[in-house]
Computed example of a mutant assay.
Amino acid sequence: MSTITPSAQTCRSAVMPILDLDMLRTFVAIAESGSMTKAARVVFRTPAAISMQVKKLEEVLQRNLLERKSRSIALTPEGEILLRYSRQLLKLNEELVGQFLCPRLNGKVTLGMPEQFGSNELPAILSQFAKSHPSVQVDVVLGKSIEIKQRFENGEIDLALISHNLHVTPDTILKTVRLEKLVWAVSKNSDAINQSPLPLALAEHGCPWRTLALEALDEAGIEYRIAYSSENCTGQLAAVMADLAVAAVPESLVKPPLKKLGHTNRLPEIGYAQTSLMLSSSANEVTLVLKDFILQVLDPRDMKADAPESVNESQAHIREALEHLKI
C-alpha cells in the first residue's frame, strides 16, 4: 500500500473523500479493545465485516492503520492519529444529534439510594446521565432504605431506590430493579460459625436483611446473639472479615476474602430481598429522564431457578401494579 504523501496542491484540487462515521466507530472499538472479535461484539457486526471496514479505511486514507500481531492488534502511528480525530468526530456527531433529539434539560433532581449502591451502580448512573444532560444538577442521598423511604414520602427526595422485604410492597413502587438472594457471609477460615449462640453482624432495625435473617433463625430454632449492629453493610462486612460474626447480606456483596455458606452448613435459607424504584406522582421532566437512565443501568436480574413461589407471586403483583399505573 502506498505511503506517499500527496502534495498540498493535489489536496486542494482533488475532491476529498468523506469518511463514514460507522467505519470510524468500528475503528475506535478495535483500538480500544485490541481485538477484532471483541470489537465485533461492541458494534454488533461480524469480525469479517469490521475487517472489511478497516480495509476500506486504509484504502481511502492510503495508510496502514493497524499492525496485526498473533494475539492482539496495535495501532500504527497513522492509526494513532486517526483514533484521535475519530473520537473527536464521533463526539461532535453525538453533540449535534443531541441538540435535536435530546433537548437540553435544566434543573435539579434529588436521588436517594441505599449505601451499597453508592460504590458500584451510582458512578455508572451519574456518568451516563451527565454526558447527555450536563446542565442538570443531581443531588445524591445515601442511607438506610427505611430513611430513604421516609424522606421520599416527606417530599425531600424525587426518586428513590429502596431495599425491602418481598412481602412488604410500597404503594408508590414504580418498578423492581433487583431481586437478590440473601446468604450467610463468613470469613474464609471462620471460627464464628462454630460458636453458640451464633454471633451476628446485622443492619439496624428496619432493614429487610435483618428481619429476614432473624425470622429464618427463629424458625430453625438456632440460638444467636447480636454481636454487632451497623448502619451500613460496610460495618457488617468488617466484623465478618475479622471473624467476629456471621452476616446476612445479598449474594453480590460476598467477595474474597469472604465466602458464602452453602446448603451443607447448618444455617437455614434466608430468602430474597427486593430493590425497587419509587417515583413521585408529581415528578418533573428531569426526574423522569433520570428514572429512564436508572432503569437502563439497573436491569432486573434473572429469577433464580430455586426462587420460592412467593417471589413469583410478588413479581405478578408488581406487573399488575405497573399496568394499573400505565407506566
Score class of each variant (00 low, 15 high):
A201R: 10
L253K: 02
E115H: 13
L179N: 13
V42Y: 01
K188T: 06
K175W: 02
K175M: 08
G34D: 04
S135H: 12
R84L: 11
G155R: 05
E121R: 05
G235F: 04
E215P: 00
K326I: 11
S132M: 08
A74F: 07
I173V: 14
I157K: 09
S7K: 11
I294Y: 02
V140Q: 09
S7M: 06
K260I: 03
D306S: 14
G206P: 04
K259W: 01
G235P: 08
E95W: 02
R104Y: 00
A213L: 06
R104G: 02
P6C: 05
I73F: 02
L166I: 14
E285L: 11
K38V: 02
V286L: 05
E67L: 10
P268K: 11
D302G: 15
S119C: 00
K69V: 04
L179V: 07
S230F: 07
K188W: 01
F27V: 07
P257N: 09
P199L: 09
Y224S: 09
C233Q: 13
R225Y: 01
L101H: 06
V168E: 14
L182E: 12
V138Q: 06
A203T: 09
P123C: 08
R63H: 03
S282R: 08
L261M: 13
Q116N: 06
V42F: 00
G112N: 09
P208T: 05
M36N: 03
S280F: 00
S281I: 03
S135K: 13
R151P: 01
S119R: 11
K55N: 09
K255C: 05
Q315F: 05
A238L: 11
K38N: 05
R68T: 08
M113R: 13
S187F: 02
I226S: 08
Q195T: 10
K38W: 00
T26L: 07
L19G: 10
M1P: 12
P256I: 05
V311W: 05
H263V: 14
G143P: 07
N93H: 14
L200V: 08
M278F: 07
V297H: 03
L212K: 13
T169Y: 01
S132T: 12
A247Y: 01
I270G: 08
M23I: 05
M16I: 10
A48Q: 15
G34I: 04
T5W: 01
F100E: 06
K69H: 12
L182G: 04
N232L: 01
H324T: 15
K149V: 06
P308A: 11
A203D: 11
A316Y: 01
D243P: 03
R151I: 01
V254D: 05
E285T: 14
G143D: 07
Y272T: 12
H133P: 01
K131I: 09
V286T: 15
S135F: 03
L89S: 11
C11R: 15
W184C: 07
S7N: 04
P114C: 10
L322W: 03
K175I: 04
F44A: 14
I73E: 03
N265Y: 14
V136K: 02
E115M: 07
D191T: 15
L159P: 06
Q236Y: 00
K260D: 05
I318M: 10
